[in-house]
């Protein structure tokens, strides 16, 4: 029996991780599977991926995928900063980050915002369930107003919509998806991995233990029944010629991603232009007014420079530059000493 290999001749086993310890049926595990499939099918080198996370159910998941990649399960809400520092140290790494709604919308909202603002080149997967799972089900800041979790009162507070926030901040790739929409999530995940800049995928990922009851607006059933999809997506990798891909019957348009791959947006219902920030905000607002969840690629900007590009660093990752280049020469210090002594 031959083992199926990807474009860089690696089996899918090279992209899997440890066994999940999350609750059976957790949406997060479906997302982990999508991450494994997407990284494998895109042919990313496992050793060049860095898995980053904060604290929470979602942030545990890097143990469950990409076992051949280094990772850092950091502290609560501080993953964006640690990732920023790591990116400055090694610009060749692909940063694949997982966070949750507690991590990103509460304790770490400042760091989330500033990583977006800097356009740090990373994939930021937000596994969003509206509750704190590890501490047994308290509401988070993304819980939908009027929603009721399994135990406790109705949530009275306005949710923080991180997609809206990201669009406002000029985030260069903003998508929302649903852990139950494997096809859509996979296409968006692959596109995010092919993007240069900050790629946010806010994945509604129902908490089966604390927030999957009928009164919850984040339950599997509710999200499935109230999902407004912006487009249907096809991700066409750079290694398969686009001419070979079957052309859809209806209207579509293609987005070329940084690595040369294509995201094909097929129109369903009214057409959404992902380069139009106002349209993205309108789509999010309208869905919220109707207690719906809008999913798909909301906003896309391929042109803005990244945090690394703004630094004007040498091409070689700083961690790999030799010590005698990193340390200035002895003669340079002589020059400085002479100048300080007024003898230059």
């Amino acid at each position: 029996m031959s083992i199926k290999l990807n474009v860089i001749d690696l089996p899918k086993d090279d992209y899997t991780g440890g066994k999940s310890t999350l609750c059976p049926g957790c949406g997060h595990d479906q997302i982990s599977t999508v991450i494994i499939n997407s990284a494998w099918e895109n042919g990313l080198k496992p050793e060049k991926i860095a898995k980053m996370s904060g604290i929470g159910c979602s942030s545990k998941t890097p143990a469950y995928f990409l076992g051949k990649s280094h990772g850092f399960n950091t502290v609560h809400g501080r993953m964006p900063a640690v990732t920023t520092g790591a990116a400055m140290g090694n610009r060749d790494l692909t940063f694949l980050a997982v966070s949750g709604d507690g991590d990103s919308a509460s304790i770490g909202i400042g760091q989330f915002i500033h990583a977006v603002r800097r356009n740090l080149d990373m994939v930021y997967v937000l596994e969003n369930n509206g509750v704190y799972g590890l501490t047994k089900g308290q509401y988070s800041a993304t819980a939908v107003k009027g929603s009721k979790k399994k135990k406790g009162a109705v949530n009275k507070f306005q949710p923080i919509d991180l997609c809206k926030l990201a669009v406002n901040l000029g985030c260069t790739f903003v998508a929302r998806s649903f852990s139950g929409s494997k096809k859509q999530l996979t296409a968006l995940m692959k596109a995010a991995m092919s993007h240069k800049g900050f790629a946010l995928i806010d994945v509604i990922s129902p908490c089966v233990t604390f927030n999957n009851n009928d009164e919850s607006l984040r339950s599997y059933t509710y999200v499935k029944d109230n999902d407004v999809e912006l487009h249907a997506y096809d991700y066409i990798p750079t290694y398969s010629p686009i001419e070979g891909v079957e052309v859809p019957e209806g209207e579509f348009h293609d987005i070329t991603l940084f690595d040369g791959s294509t995201l094909r947006l097929e129109t369903i219902g009214s057409d959404h232009d992902p380069t139009d920030a106002v349209a993205a905000m309108a789509a999010l607002h309208n869905a919220e007014m109707e207690d719906k969840h809008v999913t798909g690629l909301l906003y896309f900007d391929p042109d803005t420079s990244t945090a690394i590009e703004d630094q004007c660093l040498v091409e070689t990752p700083l961690a790999e530059v030799s010590d005698d280049v990193m340390r200035p020469s002895a003669s340079s210090l002589e020059v400085l000493n002479a100048r300080f002594r007024g003898k230059d």
Partner: peptide
């Protein structure tokens, strides 16, 4: 911490 982790 991130920079040190990455080796710089």
């Amino acid at each position: 911490v991130g920079g040190g982790w990455a080796g710089s």
